[in-house]
Design a binder for these strands. Structure first.
Lengths: 145, 145
DNA sequence: ATAGGATCTCTAGTCGCTATAGCTTCAAGG
DNA sequence: CCTTGAAGCTATAGCGACTAGAGATCCTAT
């Protein structure tokens, strides 16, 4: 049985994050030692590794909750898992296209900037005047970069 | 002078977001009508359009705060604006590389899934066993996709 | 005059953690 | 056996960038 710290080192998931996953029910409530400290066995370690890998692939915690439920039930059809992964792939592709457009516009902005006075700065100018962009950008929900 | 709703329609920024920008000091406190409703002139409208465009390019609000300060001072050197945009470009490029790796792994997972039982599902299997991936992924701070 | 949309303030919720405070427990060294 | 310091515990608050809701007020059109 591993302490939370050892589990953290073994999986690369930080201690408070492990406790958080338990709190939101992604990990089962841990067994406790006589002194009330969490103890973990192999099963939970594997579960946590699964969660971590899925997070690295960008799955949302709610998706991971579903994937875990599927993984727990090996007789079910994996169509649902496929659907979740397919949705994730589509989201990643959408994000890729959007980021490529942003990269292009940032490069254009920077290429034209002569690093002189602000009054002549292409960066500031383009930001202030959308008509100077080469294209439309997404207007909606995906503004983080 | 525009009401907040008209400013919202004119710029594509939602009403609560405009109020939020005022609250955090990104927009100046609006003038008020006799009935205490916000009124906006051309200057604020331009400022908001600038903010929106920068957000679309993925700049953080704190970066935008700096860029706005620079835009307000046309005699200054635009080296600082260049630096901010360059940093943003580097972040976008890093994110692009990472997303491409994710896309590749998701595609591999999906390509090998025969849509049969969970027990044979490549998607679940790869998530559970990191050794099955073709590569390392980022371990750190950029897990959203 | 009134109906209904727009606006006001304030609070709380989202996601996935991360940080802090103030406590208890555990493991190693003397 | 005792001490010390690391590691653990709970609970709460904060991050970024909004979004949603409640309940009150205002403005406009008929």
């Amino acid at each position: 049985m591993l302490s939370i710290g050892k589990l953290s080192r073994a999986t690369g998931v930080k201690v408070p994050t492990i406790r958080y996953y338990e709190q939101i029910g992604l990990l089962p409530e841990a067994e406790r030692s006589s002194g009330n400290q969490r103890l973990y066995g192999r099963r939970t370690q594997e579960r946590l590794a699964f969660i971590r890998h899925a997070r690295e692939l960008g799955f949302a915690l709610e998706d991971i909750r579903e994937l875990l439920a599927l993984a727990d039930d090996p007789e079910r059809s994996c169509a649902a898992a496929d659907r979740i992964a397919g949705r994730q792939l589509a989201a990643v592709n959408a994000r890729l296209r959007r980021l490529e457009a942003l990269r292009d516009e940032l490069e254009r902005m920077l290429a034209h900037c002569s690093s002189g006075r602000i009054a002549d700065c292409r960066v500031i100018e383009v930001l202030g005047n959308h008509a100077l962009c080469g294209h439309e950008h997404a207007t909606g929900d995906d503004l983080s970069a």
